[in-house]
Write a protein that binds this DNA or RNA. Structure first.
Lengths: 221, 221
DNA sequence: TCGCCTTGGGTGACAATGTCACTGAAGGGG
DNA sequence: CCCCTTCAGTGACATTGTCACCCAAGGCGA
């Protein structure tokens, strides 16, 4: 598998001189994974930088008793710094990345990463920026979990998952894993939403009947 | 105020050539703050890298309704990357850093930071490592808040705050802010600990009577 | 088509935690 | 010594998490 010029897709490589980019294309490895496969995890720590060329990765954390929470998502054109984080910090953590769609990624070996970080300002800024955004994503998660109400958070998530569509395919369990809560809690809240005619449910799908009501709820944080 | 050779104190600068360090000492600014002063915050975003030479900074996040949670602490010899994070990511966040003791810090202007990051591997690795550790700190916070029990978390915190001493000076409100919960909750749990003779309380202080019992509780996560 | 069987979802009881509206106690400064 | 601020205790209630179930939907093989 070859991608003619993947460096176009990344803020951190697009601005590099032609010569550098050609060299990069030589040393980088292209990796493809199927939807559902694990990209990284506690027992599977890569020692290279991971650029997501196509697809989406869901990064989540699982507790000892099996509950799960989604930390953030990595979209095409972004870098997954958590892999690098672990590589550098040599500490245990129990987050894992799952391919949410089929994905294509560019894997840069550590030596190439180091050289690039040393020589190219644009690249270095890209990596620092990626770290910063993730830090801020996590601040948001902490805020939500520590201080947010689940009905508000669920409304937000439903709207976000729907995008501009009217319907979502998701089980209660999946939604619970998004928010780091239990299925029963989601069932109760959705029941409530249903009674208030904001949504309609059928097995595995949720129709958003009244988005503006959901938005009101979501913004009443 | 001058510090003869602060570069000795930082992993990221200690390994640098004498010449570079001397130049650093020229361009860096020394800042001192009193205990309780704000180091950075939503309305006070520095555009430089912050090295903590002496003292300790508490980084916490405050919710809209006034509850607070401690995210992590920065100790002498560490860098406070959240300041940098914000500088780079240009996104809003509501974390703030408070000087928990009188502090002395070395502030490196952005141009000097950039040059150093480009030219010196040791420095760059130090900064990447600092980011990584903070990311992992936050993963731990998310895990605790989303999945942990407060009695367990409180026991941990008491032991940690005590260090090798037997007594802690802290109000229930302060402990609540550490864990991101409400004062009443802390009061109830401490009451319980007291009944079980693990601690004794007086106004503003807590004596740890039975540390091993607390450790048992803390490890029963 | 019928009858599993797996998966998704509903429910009630209870436990843990958060919120509210108070109360009184402790201790410092006029 | 009194007042006043800060700290801590309390009961009632709301929200969220846990447990032990139940039933329903729908796929699939007999």
């Amino acid at each position: 598998m070859k991608i003619p010029d993947w460096t176009e897709r990344f803020e951190g490589t697009r601005a590099l001189p032609r010569k550098v980019r050609d060299r990069l294309i030589q040393v980088a490895r292209i990796v493809q994974l199927k939807k559902g496969e694990q990209v990284f995890g506690p027992t599977n720590i890569p020692d290279s930088l991971f650029f997501l060329y196509d697809g989406r990765i869901r990064v989540s954390q699982t507790s000892d008793n099996g509950r799960e929470i989604v930390l953030y998502r990595v979209d095409a054109g972004e870098s997954c710094v958590l892999t690098t984080a672990c590589m550098l910090a040599e500490e245990a953590y129990n987050a894992e990345g799952i391919a949410e769609t089929d994905i294509t990624a560019v894997v840069l070996p550590k030596p190439a990463f180091d050289r690039l970080a040393a020589e190219e300002d644009a690249f270095r800024n890209f990596v620092f920026g990626a770290y910063s955004r993730r830090l801020i994503d996590l601040l948001r998660v902490v805020d939500d979990v520590a201080f947010g109400r689940i009905d508000v958070r669920l409304a937000e998530r439903l709207l976000h998952l729907a995008g501009d569509r009217k319907e979502i395919s998701a089980t209660h369990q999946q939604l619970a894993s998004e928010l780091g809560t239990a299925r029963e809690v989601i069932s109760r809240v959705l029941q409530d939403f249903q009674k208030r005619e904001m949504i309609a449910q059928s097995r595995g799908r949720i129709a958003l009947l009244n988005k503006s009501a959901l938005m009101n709820l979501a913004n009443s944080a």
